[in-house]
Amino acid sequence: MACCGCNDNGNVAVKDVDKLDQILSKYEGVKGSLISILQDVQGLYEYLPIEALNYISEVTGIKLAKIYGVATFYTQFRLDPVGKHVILLCQGTACHVNGSKAIEEAICEELEISEGETTKDGLFTLTNVACLGCCSLSPVMMIDGEVHGKLTPKKTKEILKAIKAEEE
């Protein structure tokens, strides 16, 4: 039932299957590699498409249930596509003490999303993350790998507006 890529019960064409095969062959015969496999696969697609999970299961023989159980346990893994810019908002203690809640509110207000959601235009995803370790710059967020520190609600909105403006 190889078909268009419609989302029915497995057996669906997987994108970039060559690259996926490369990842799987790298871990062939190495027991206990499921998490590493999922990390590499997420590196490939930015998230874990269900088709890819099915494919991993078929090739490795690891049961789909187990893969799903692991993928939903760890916060690093995402089962849904993410926006172009991922905002990682630090939830460390120092950031909390220095007002990260107000920063979260500012982001949510500016982008009209809640934590974990993606904007309708697909530009931004907001994710809370464990301590980024830049405590002296708190409160901190990271967008596309760049750290923005000593945030205020106003500064946060300006940063987001600047990215939006660039995209237009």
Binding site: I35, K66, G69, V70, T75
Partner: peptide, 24 residues
């Protein structure tokens, strides 16, 4: 071996589960 985001994996037996590719 890179962890995947679970504080509980700092607990040694959970860490071992994670190393073996399981839920931590």
């Amino acid at each position: 071996k890179a962890g995947a985001g679970a504080f509980v994996c700092g607990e040694e037996t959970a860490l071992l589960e994670s190393l073996e590719g399981n839920r931590g």
